[in-house]
Amino acid sequence: MDTLENVQLKLETMNAQADRAYLRLSRKFGQLRLHHLERRNLLIQNIPGFWGQAFQNHPQLSSFLNNQDKEVLSYLNSLEVEELGLARLGYKIKFYFGRNPYFQNKVLIKEYGCGPSGQVVSRSTPIQWLPGHDLQSLSQGSPENSRSFFGWFSNHSSIESDKIVEIINEELWPNPLQYYLMSEGARVEKGKEGKPVPARPPGETSEPADNKSN
């Protein structure tokens, strides 16, 4: 009869084998996935304003944007989400901007990971605002403007900041096309039911059932 110690040793050996197999699969599919992500990025770059429109169309992300944020995001050429470590210990979100009248940065980065004691920590690129265009200061000084989305880059502690990261990582990044194509009516449906509805192709209209010919 196996002793408890022998059974435990067999379990540990099996767990080690499973871990090695997981790492091999992660590397394999990571490389395959990377190829498609690079191809997707190239195609998106040929669609002007793609990422800015996807942000505006997302039912939750849009609530973090004021009018000036939407203008700045129209200069967003590319977005990348990089997983840190095979065990997904964190994320690095990269925003690539074209030349714009708001800041000098070509790339803004927000990074989330685990600190030494296991707590979640974040760091980000300081935004080099051009004179008179600091959206954080402008939004604080005007009651007509809501808080700027770009305050997220310097926000490292609030639940709101964590929510933005979660939305980008789990919804926008995996399939940005569905949000780029989303119509205003579909955004309302998404907000109510949690399921995105793609925009209807141009020229296609729905007819009431009573008006259809038999």
Rank of each mutant, 00 (worst) to 15 (best):
F103H: 06
S154N: 10
L89G: 14
V81N: 10
G52T: 02
L61C: 12
R27Y: 03
G118Q: 04
N169D: 08
H58Q: 04
P174H: 09
L135P: 02
L108T: 04
R24T: 11
R147F: 10
S122A: 07
S158H: 05
E80I: 00
K94T: 14
S183A: 13
E207F: 04
F153A: 07
N211T: 08
R27V: 03
H58M: 05
A21Q: 08
N57K: 14
G185F: 10
I167T: 08
G203T: 01
L108Q: 09
G132P: 09
K94A: 13
N169K: 12
L181V: 06
R88S: 12
H35Y: 06
R39H: 08
V81I: 09
N100T: 05
N175L: 03
E5A: 07
N6S: 08
S142F: 03
Q53W: 00
A54I: 01
G98M: 11
Q31A: 08
N46D: 12
E12S: 15
Y96I: 08
G52P: 02
P202V: 03
P196M: 01
L42A: 15
M1Q: 11
L130W: 00
E207I: 13
D210S: 15
S74W: 02
P101K: 06
W152M: 02
G113K: 05
A209M: 10
S78I: 00
H156E: 06
G90N: 07
R99I: 09
E12P: 00
L84T: 09
A186G: 15
G132N: 08
E83V: 09
T205C: 08
L65V: 03
F95C: 01
E184F: 06
L181T: 03
L84M: 09
G118N: 05
F29R: 01
F55D: 05
V120A: 04
S183I: 02
E170T: 15
G185V: 04
Q8L: 15
K110I: 03
S124Q: 06
R123Q: 12
N145E: 07
L108Y: 05
V81W: 10
E189Y: 15
H35A: 12
L84Q: 14
D162M: 07
E144Y: 10
D210Y: 14
N77Q: 15
N57S: 11
K212D: 05
P116N: 07
D134H: 14
S157Y: 13
